[in-house]
Amino acid sequence: MTAGTILFYDGTFNGFLTCIFSAFEQKLEVNGIYTEATPQENIFAEPLNISTNSEKAERVIIGLKKKISNDSYRQLYFAFLSELEGIEMLLFQYINLVFKEENFSSKDFGHPIVLKINQTSKKVSREKHRMEAFVRFQLTKDDIFFATIEPDFNVLPVILKHFESRYSDQKWIIYDLKRNLGLFYNLQETSYINFNFKSKDHLDPSNSSIYSTSEIGFQKLWREYFESTNIKSRKNMKLHLQHVPKRYWKYLTEKSTWQN
C-alpha cells in the first residue's frame, strides 16, 4: 500500500492550479492539498511543496476551459474562494471528473461532488453580493472613501470590478481585516494593499485626525433615515436577522453600536 502524497501550496488560486498540474504530470496519488501554514498530521504520506508557477496554472485553465463553460469555470473559482476546509481536495476530485469522465457535466446535480461544488460556489456568490451591499465607506480627510470588512469568504478579488465601475470618480479602499488585505482604487486602477494597523483608530468615524469633518453628519443622517423608514407595526426581527445576520453589524453604519 502506498501512502500517497500530500501537496502544500501558498494559498493562491494559481498555486492550487500548479498543484493540479503537478498531480497530473507526475501521476501523483494525492492524499491531501493544504496551504503551507497547515500543520501536517498524516505522518505516512509524502509531503511535497509546490511552488506557484503561473505558466503551469495557465495551462490548467486552458485545459479546463476546453472542457467546461465559462460559467462552470467561474463556479470552480468561486468554490475555491470559499477557503472551506478540504475544498482543495474536493476541487481536485471535481477536476478529475472534468478531465476523465467522458460525459462530464457541471449540471449533473445528482452527482454528490458536482452538487457540492455548485452549492459552495452559490455560498461564495451570496457573500460577494452581501459585500457589494454591506460595504460602508467613510470619507477620510484626504478624500478617500474607506471601508473595512470581514467577509466569511475571500471575496475581494470578485467584488473589485463592481466597485471599480460604480465608484470610478472617487478614490476608495476596501480592507478585509480578516485576511489583512485590501483594494485601493486611485482613480486610474485598483491594486492590492497591505496595512499594519497599530490601533483601532481607523474604525472611529469621529476621529478628526483621520475622517472628514462632515463624515459624522452624514452617518447620523443615514441612521435617522434608517430609523424613520421602519414600520413598527410590521416588526419582524426573525426576517431582519435572516437578511442581516449579526456578524455583519459591526461595520454597518446603521446597525453598529457606536453612538453619536
Binding site: 453580493h129 451591499a133 454591506f134 465601475s165 414600520i231 426576517l239
Partner: peptide
C-alpha cells in the same frame, strides 16, 4: 458609468433591511 458616479447593471442590491424585514 461614463466617467461619473454610479451604474445599474440590472441586478438590484438591498443595502440593508429594516427591522420589519
Amino acid at each position: 458609468n461614463k466617467g461619473g458616479l454610479g451604474n445599474s447593471d440590472g441586478v438590484g442590491i438591498c443595502h440593508s433591511y429594516t427591522e420589519d424585514g
